[in-house]
């Protein structure tokens, strides 16, 4: 994954960048699968590797394939990125060790969900019961986000037809 990321940064040919980001998405999906997050892995494989690659290639069809040389030095952005990245990595030292079972997120609401999901909703997949039932309102919000995004993109792309 680190290699693909470096490749994405170094390469100037946008076609290879798109293909590399597809590979990155597939690796990410595999990683999520290893973490037992099958729902997210499925989404990553379908959206990240499938649809967004197709959309990116469509965009490349309308623009140039090779990226132009940058017009300005990138020292200041590099410093800002390194500083913020360093601070975030420093912040991870405050987190509990990876996979620890006595952390707050595993002792409060997750346990409730895991215990009560089956008896309250009768749905074996806890992810679905949390998404659709306990957090139904959030999911409604997400659908409205998709709806708004689609309306926005469509009104930009089709503005000369109206």
């Amino acid at each position: 994954m680190a290699l693909t990321t470096l490749g994405i940064i170094r390469l100037r040919n946008l076609f290879s960048v798109v293909i590399l980001s597809t590979i990155y998405s597939f690796l990410m999906a595999t990683l999520l699968l290893i973490f037992d997050a099958v729902d997210v892995a499925l989404t990553e494989a379908a959206v990240g590797a499938g649809i967004s690659t197709v959309l990116m290639l469509t965009v490349l069809y309308y623009t140039k394939v090779n990226e132009e040389k940058p017009k300005f030095k990138s020292i200041l952005p590099l410093i800002i990125c390194l500083t913020i990245g360093g601070l975030l990595i420093y912040g991870t030292y405050g987190l509990p060790p990876f996979g620890a079972s006595d952390t707050p997120i595993h002792t409060h609401i997750s346990v409730q969900y895991l215990e009560r999901s089956m008896s309250e909703t009768g749905v074996p997949n806890v992810v679905t019961s949390v998404l659709a039932s306990y957090r139904g309102f959030d999911t409604l919000g997400e659908v409205i986000v998709v709806f708004t995004a689609a309306i926005g993109v469509l009104s930009i792309l089709k503005r000369d037809k109206i």
Partner: peptide
């Protein structure tokens, strides 16, 4: 709960297909 979950999943399904293919 079952009916409700299937109904809202159908809603999500329809919106997502619509937006992806329209775009």
């Amino acid at each position: 709960q079952h009916i409700g979950i299937i109904a809202i999943e159908l809603g999500v399904f329809v919106t997502v297909i619509g937006s992806m293919v329209s775009i």
